[in-house]
Write a protein that binds this DNA or RNA. Structure first.
Lengths: 96, 96
DNA sequence: ACCGATTACGAAACACGTAACGATG
DNA sequence: CATCGTTACGTGTTTCGTAATCGGT
């Protein structure tokens, strides 16, 4: 796998499900700016455009769709593992 | 899913496959110290001990085993996605 | 004008390497 | 005493929030 920042993928995944940076930012407890920067950097690292910036939010490119679908699956698997480890499954720990 | 640093999970995954921090560090182009720190932090975040520190390397706890298995699956899925995106397989696996 | 995304930039958090240390065979 | 893991510490890098800005409807 490429040397891609997995955390950025998680951010992208949330953005993809919302089709909107603002909402994604809220869910992630981040600012819009931070989310935008992260997505942009991810696209640069991958060398692929994942989002189509529209006037009224964002939509996914075909590459973005594939990436999103894969992330959902991958995160689901990891989630299962954490549950079996005995974790609270959705703990949010804001950075600040 | 928990707010776990996915990059730390990747490091853990490599450590798990080698049962040895030193080798994992080499493969990841990191120092032993960095790997040790990352694993430790991951364990703290998860609230679970993943590795049993032996005198001559490390072995996995049951939780560690589950975590490792899940990571392998998850990474495989993501890998597939990146291939379908048209990646130039920039994997850190130099022919060795 | 409104709404949403982007960008610049200073501040904070993070991850790293080094190196000294501890433990074990 | 050689090897492997840990810890402390200083430093460079990453990521963040803020706020100004751009773009479309």
């Amino acid at each position: 796998m490429k040397n891609v920042n997995l955390n950025a993928l998680r951010v992208f995944s949330v953005v993809a499900t919302h089709g909107n940076l603002q909402r994604a930012a809220e869910e992630l407890n981040l600012s819009r700016g931070a989310v935008s920067q992260r997505i942009k950097q991810l696209e640069i690292e991958l060398g692929v455009v994942l989002l189509v910036r529209g006037a009224r939010g964002v939509s996914l490119t075909p590459e973005g769709e594939r990436c999103h679908a894969a992330m959902e699956d991958a995160l689901a698997i990891l989630d299962t593992a954490f549950v079996s480890i005995g974790e609270d499954s959705d703990r949010v720990t804001p950075r600040k």
